[in-house]
């Protein structure tokens, strides 16, 4: 599978992000990125998945100007990050993975600082809107050191949104935050997308990507190994499981059925049949006929789709 180009570019033809032939080797000799080509269209939520050390953070850091590329080209809304760095950077917001905050700063001040740093004129109304959207308004005069980890994470998001970016990078945004906050963040991300912000998300929680992403990219060993619409990916690579609740438990799969991909579960009360959704024939009709012939009766049946996590693990394992 090869990375796909954006399906729908922006109004002026330029995608939100275009990465071509990007590679990075650190001074230590470690090759963090091989050759990365990637295009992200405006207004989408793109989830970048990959195991630890795959190159996710290096890729984001290069795009944001924190790490120097060894070669290749990156454009943000058509602005080259080297030649037109000032314009390119002003369009980007970054929420880093680490909870890096200035302990003695007040929440409102640190968010206003971020806005000023990007050259935007002061806008207390916008700062208030962002703080309220992230449930931080009550904490606006609190020093950063007094906040919980989850609250600090929200402040980092507020800082990244202070200058109204068009492309937002969320590097592991929900790492270490509780379920409630995670769901709040998902809601916020969706709201930002509705406002036209393009979002690139890296996460270890595949559930997060499954919940929010329009498209998914998988990176491993410094290379993008797949870019696909999430739905298409799940359809293409996903395998379905048909679970049959048996009336009488089985000790083993009868010989007449060993040619099928079957397994027993729930102490023989359940028969699981795994099939490929893309195959010409799923084999379900044949299975039901064979079960009937073998005299096996069932009381209930349901199907389950492979999760994105299972697809991801399978992909990375195959690559390795």
């Amino acid at each position: 599978m090869t990375p796909q180009a954006a399906e729908r570019p922006g109004e002026d033809g330029a995608p939100a992000l275009s990465v071509r032939g990007l590679h990075k080797t650190y001074e230590s000799g470690f090759q963090a990125l091989r050759t990365v080509d990637l295009e992200i269209r405006r207004g989408e939520i793109f989830a970048l998945l990959g195991p630890n050390g795959a190159g996710k953070t290096t890729l984001i850091s290069i795009i944001c100007g924190i790490v120097r590329p060894s070669g290749g080209q990156v454009e943000v809304n058509g602005h080259d990050i080297v030649r037109d760095w000032r314009r390119a950077r002003s369009l980007i917001g970054l929420v880093p993975q680490e909870l890096t905050t200035d302990s003695f700063e007040k929440v409102r001040d640190t968010v206003a600082f971020s806005r000023g740093l990007y050259g935007c004129r002061p806008d207390p109304a916008h700062i208030e809107h962002v703080l309220r959207a992230l449930s931080l308004w009550d904490k606006r005069d609190a020093q950063m050191r007094t906040l919980s980890g989850g609250m600090k994470r929200r402040v980092l998001i507020a800082k990244a949104l202070a200058h109204e970016p068009e492309l937002l990078f969320l590097d592991e945004p929900t790492a270490g935050v509780d379920v409630e906050l995670r769901r709040d963040m998902w809601a916020l991300v969706r709201e930002l997308r509705e406002q036209g912000v393009t979002i690139v998300l890296t996460t270890h929680y595949i559930e997060e990507a499954e919940e929010m992403a329009d498209r998914v990219g998988v990176i491993n060993h410094g290379q993008i190994i797949l870019v696909e619409r999430k739905d298409t990916l799940m359809q293409k690579l996903g395998r379905k499981r048909l679970a049959l609740q048996l009336q009488t438990p089985l000790l083993a799969i009868p010989d007449a059925l060993t040619h099928l991909e079957l397994e027993l579960a729930d102490d023989g009360h359940q028969l699981i049949y795994t099939f490929d959704t893309q195959a010409e024939r799923t084999g379900i009709t044949r299975l039901l006929q064979d079960l009937s012939s073998a005299g096996i009766r069932f009381s209930d049946m349901h199907t389950e789709q492979s999760t994105l996590e299972e697809i991801f693990v399978d992909l990375v394992r195959r690559e390795s």
Partner: peptide
């Protein structure tokens, strides 16, 4: 201090020369 605390990322990523 920003280097030590990690907040320097914001300065490096900002459109400031």
């Amino acid at each position: 201090f920003p280097r030590f605390s990690g907040t320097v990322y914001e300065i490096l990523a900002a459109p400031v020369s």
